[in-house]
Design a binder for these strands. Structure first.
Lengths: 201, 201
DNA sequence: TTTTATTGATTGAACGTTCAATAAAAAAAT
DNA sequence: ATTTTTTTATTGAACGTTCAATCAATAAAA
C-alpha cells in the first residue's frame, strides 16, 4: 500500500520496533526479521531506509540520546535563572523521567552501552552524551565551589546516576524510579551541604 | 600432546581466553574459533569440556563472581571484629581491586551484565551476587542506624559502586581505580556522618 | 504511464556442534 | 627393557542452521 511520504513514518516505526525487539529478546537475538515483524513490514525495508541493520541500530541509539537530552533541556528551560541546586535537580529528574527508566528504552540503552565498547560509531555517540552530562553537572557545581571540587562532585553524581540507571534497567521490576530519584537527590544534598549553610534542617 | 589431568588446566585456559576474546572484540564477536585460538587449542575442545559455548560463558561469569567474592571476603577477614565503617570500606575496596576494575575482567563483567537481561542462567548468577552485596552493606549499616535508613544507605552505596564500575569499564583508560575508590569512600563518609559525630575534621 | 514503496525468495557468509581420525601417554605384556 | 595394548586428549573438516543483504517482481499512487 505505497503512499508518498512514508519515509519518516517507517523510520519511526522501525526504531520503535527495534526497542521492542531488544526489550523482548535482547540485542543478540534482535534479528532484522524480528524487528520487521514488530513493525509489521518486511525485512528488506530495513536496508532500504537505513542502509542495513547497523544503520538502524545507530539511528535507534541516536533517538534515545536525543530524547534524553530533550527531557533534561525541557526541565532546565522551565527554571530560567534558577539556583545551581535547582538546575542539578532538574538534570537528575530529566535523567530519570525520560521515557521511563524501566521498560524497553532502558534495556535498549543498557544493551547499547555494552555494545559501544566495541563499536566505534556507538562509542562516539555514547561519549558525546557522557561529556554533556559531565559538563552540565560540572558547570553548576562550579557556581558553588572551587574547580577541582566541582569536578569531583560532578564525577560522583554522574556515577550515581548511571548506577541507579543500571539497577533500574536490570532488576526484575526495576528499582522504583521514585526511590532512585530520591537517592540521587539525597546524594546531591550531601554534596552541597558544605557549601550551602543556609538550608540547614 | 595429551597428558593425563589436563581438564583443570584446559578449563582455566579457556576461561581466560574467553575474557581475552570479549575484551578484544566484545561478546557478540567472541566466537568459539576465536576463543580457541586465544587458548591455543582447537574449537572442538570447548564442547568437550564445557558441553558447548553456553557452558563456557556461564563458567566464565561464575569465575568472575567467585573472584569478586573472594576479594571482598579476604579483606573483611583481615578485619576480624572491625567497626562497621571498616567493614564497609573493605567491601568498597574489594569491589574495586578485584583483578583490576579496568581491563578484560571489567569488560567481560559488563558484557555479561547486559546479557543477563535475557539469559536466565546468567540472570540467576547476577542476582545472587547482587543480593550478597546488598545484604553485606545493609547488615553493616544496620549496626549504626535504624533498619529503613540502613537499607536506604545500602541501596545508595550499591548504586554508587555499580556506577563507578560501569564508568571504569567504559571510559577509554578507565576511570582511575584510585579516584573511583575515593569517590565511594567519600560517599560512605557522608552516609555515616550523621551517625558518627566523633570523627569530625 | 511513470514514480514510489514494498515484498520475500534467494544467496553467500559465518557460526556452533559433531565425530571419525589421530597421536601421545600410560599400562600391560613380553 | 622393549614392545604391544589401552586409555586419554585433541584435532579439524563436514554438516546443518541462521542471518543480513540483495534484487527482480509487484502493486498502489501520482
Amino acid at each position: 500500500m505505497p503512499k508518498v511520504g512514508m519515509e519518516p513514518i517507517r523510520r519511526q516505526q522501525l526504531i520503535q520496533a527495534t526497542m521492542a525487539a531488544i526489550d523482548e529478546v535482547g540485542l543478540a537475538d534482535a534479528t532484522v526479521a524480528r524487528i520487521a515483524r514488530h513493525a509489521g513490514v518486511s525485512a528488506g525495508i530495513i536496508s532500504h531506509y537505513f542502509g542495513g541493520k547497523d544503520g538502524l541500530l545507530e539511528a535507534t541509539m541516536r533517538q534515545i540520546l536525543t530524547d534524553l537530552g530533550d527531557a533534561v533541556a525541557a526541565r532546565r528551560r522551565a527554571l530560567a535563572n534558577g539556583s545551581p541546586r535547582a538546575h542539578l535537580g532538574a538534570i537528575i529528574d530529566g535523567n530519570f523521567d525520560h521515557s521511563q527508566v524501566t521498560g524497553p528504552v532502558a534495556k535498549t540503552w543498557l544493551a547499547f552501552w555494552a555494545s559501544s565498547m566495541h563499536t566505534p560509531r556507538l562509542a562516539r555517540l555514547q561519549r558525546v552524551n557522557d561529556r554533556r552530562l559531565y559538563a552540565n553537572l560540572s558547570h553548576q557545581f562550579r557556581r558553588l565551589m572551587p574547580r577541582e571540587e566541582a569536578r569531583h562532585a560532578a564525577r560522583g553524581l554522574a556515577a550515581m546516576i548511571d548506577g541507579l540507571w543500571l539497577r533500574g534497567a536490570l532488576t526484575p521490576e526495576g528499582l522504583a524510579a521514585d526511590r532512585a530519584r530520591r537517592l540521587a537527590h539525597d546524594y546531591l544534598d550531601q554534596l552541597l551541604a558544605a557549601y550551602e549553610p543556609l538550608s540547614e534542617s
